[in-house]
Amino acid sequence: MSYSKQEVVDRCQILLAHAWMVRTFVKHSDEIDDFPELMNITRAVFDTSRALETRVDDLDAYLKMLRKKMRKLRQATDQFAVDAPNASLHTNFQQAVISMKACTKELEELLEQVE
């Protein structure tokens, strides 16, 4: 299936909205006080989202910046999958890990569609 750049950017924005909600959950969780390493995912999502929001009307610049930010977001997601269970085994944390993995995976797949 082929997507236009606009369709890819639109889908990326939806995925980043999901990632932002994970960020918000983690940032405001009680566990953050005892597990400050969880802040890595919040910073990575913040950094990625803020870098992209100024480029949403310039599709090529948006995709270029997303490519640049993906390594850091992938690393933060992978580390979050390790750190979150140490902080809590609660379903909220389990679902947050699943959500971040899905967002990151689909962002990577979308970038492959337009390369």
Rank of each mutant, 00 (worst) to 15 (best):
Q94E: 09
A17P: 02
L63A: 12
A76P: 03
N40Q: 12
A87M: 02
T54C: 10
L107T: 01
A17F: 14
P85C: 01
Q79A: 12
A17E: 13
K72P: 05
I41K: 00
M39K: 14
W20P: 04
R11S: 00
I14V: 14
C12F: 01
D10V: 04
Q6V: 06
K5E: 07
I98G: 01
Q79M: 12
L89T: 11
F93D: 02
L38E: 02
R11P: 01
V9G: 12
K105P: 00
D78R: 09
D57W: 08
E108V: 06
E106G: 05
V82H: 04
Q13G: 04
D34W: 01
P85S: 02
L107E: 08
T77S: 11
L16V: 14
V8E: 04
V82R: 05
N92V: 03
R43G: 00
A96V: 15
T42V: 14
L111I: 00
V97E: 09
A96H: 06
M39N: 15
R74M: 03
A44G: 01
D34K: 02
H18N: 15
F25Y: 08
Q6T: 09
H28K: 08
A87H: 03
T24G: 11
L111N: 02
R55K: 15
T91A: 05
D30Q: 11
A102T: 11
A81M: 01
F93I: 03
A76H: 10
M70W: 07
L107W: 03
Q94F: 00
Q94P: 00
L107D: 07
Q113I: 11
E112S: 10
K5L: 06
Q13K: 12
D78E: 11
T91G: 00
M70H: 12
S29F: 11
L66F: 03
Q113E: 14
D30I: 11
K69L: 07
H28Q: 02
R43N: 12
N92S: 15
E115C: 07
M39H: 09
V9K: 09
V8Q: 06
D58C: 04
I98H: 01
F25R: 04
L66W: 03
V114I: 15
D60G: 08
T91D: 07
D30R: 04
Q113S: 14
V56G: 00
D47M: 04
E108R: 06
D33Y: 11
V45Q: 08
N92E: 06
F35K: 02
F25I: 05
F46Y: 13
E106H: 10
K69S: 13
K105S: 12
L66V: 05
T42D: 10
L73M: 13
W20G: 10
T48H: 13
S29L: 05
A96S: 15
M1A: 05
A84I: 09
I98S: 04
L111W: 06
F93Y: 09
L66D: 03
L52D: 08
H18E: 15
E37I: 03
T54Q: 14
M39C: 10
M21L: 14
E112T: 11
V45E: 08
T54N: 14
